[in-house]
Nucleic acid binder design. Sequence first.
DNA 1: ACATACCTGACCAAAATGGTCAAGTTTAGA
DNA 2: TCTAAACTTGACCATTTTGGTCAGGTATGT
Lengths: 141, 141
Amino acid sequence: MKLTSKGRYAVMALVDLARFDNINPVSLRDISLRQGISLDYLEQIFSKLKKNEIVKSIRGTQGGYVLNKNPNDIKLTNIFNAVDEKVKTVQCKKESKRGCNGKATKCITHNLWDELELHINTFFENKSLKDLLNNNKESRV
Amino acid sequence: MKLTSKGRYAVMALVDLARFDNINPVSLRDISLRQGISLDYLEQIFSKLKKNEIVKSIRGTQGGYVLNKNPNDIKLTNIFNAVDEKVKTVQCKKESKRGCNGKATKCITHNLWDELELHINTFFENKSLKDLLNNNKESRV
DNA sequence: ACATACCTGACCAAAATGGTCAAGTTTAGA
DNA sequence: TCTAAACTTGACCATTTTGGTCAGGTATGT
C-alpha cells in the first residue's frame, strides 16, 4: 500500500504554486527547479489539474499557472482524483450485481476494505491546500 | 494508492482459518477452494505468516495450519507486516541525514505524508482478527 | 519575429504484481 | 511399510503500473 509519486508531486507542486502565484503566474520550470521534479512529468500532471479546473494556465512569455480556486477549497481529494490517484482497496466494486470472487457472497472481508477506504478518504477530504500552507512554516531539517 | 492482493488474501485466509481451526488444522487446499485464491500463491503467503509466528503448520495427512495466537491478539498491522504490505507514503525516510530531494530541507509536504501514514497505521493497529469475525455474520450479498 | 511557456501524444525501461511450475520433505493412517 | 495428503522451497514469468523521456507542436507578450 503506497502512495505513487504522481500524487505526491501534484500536491508538492500545488503547494509551491500556492505560495508564489499571488504575484505572477508560476512557470512549471520554476516549480521543476524548486521541487526537483522533471519538467516533462510536471506537464503531464498539470494537464490533468487543468482539466479538473484546479489550476488555470496563462500562455506566452511570463505565462505559467495560477490556482483556479481558493486554497481553502482545494482538498486533497480533489487533487488526487484529478491525477487518478484513487484509493483502491477492492476491485470487486464494479461487478456490482455479483459478489466478489464471482460467488454469490461478498468476500469475507469486504466490509473491512470499505471501512478502510472510508477512513483514508475522510483524511483526504478534510485536508485542504490551505492547511498545508500553514503547516509548512518550520520545515527545515 | 491501493491495497495489493497479497495483503487482502492474507487477511481473507486468516479469517477463514480462524473460523475453522477450532476443530482441525485447516489445509491450504480448503482455503483455496473456499476463498478462490490460488493454492500456490497461498503457500507463499503462509510461508511468511509462519515466519512471523502468526500461524503454526502441522505436516502430513490431515495436517494444515492453525492460528498461533488468540484472534484478539492478531492485529491487521501484524498481518500486513508479515506479508510485506507496508504503508509507504514517502521514500525519503531512509536517507535520514539528508532532506527529501537530496536538498537540505524536508520536502514541502513531508509532514503531510507522515500524518497520513500515521492515520492509516492507526486503523490497522486497532483492528484485530476477532473484530473481523464478529463483523462477518451477515455478509450475504 | 522570437523567446518563453504551455500542450500533446508517442514511446520506453524498470519495478512491482500476481501469479505458475517443479521438485522436493514430512507424516498420518491404511 | 507404503502412499497420499499436505507442507516447503525456490526458480521462473507474463502483465501491468510507474515514472518518466522525447519530439514535436501552439499560443502570446514584448
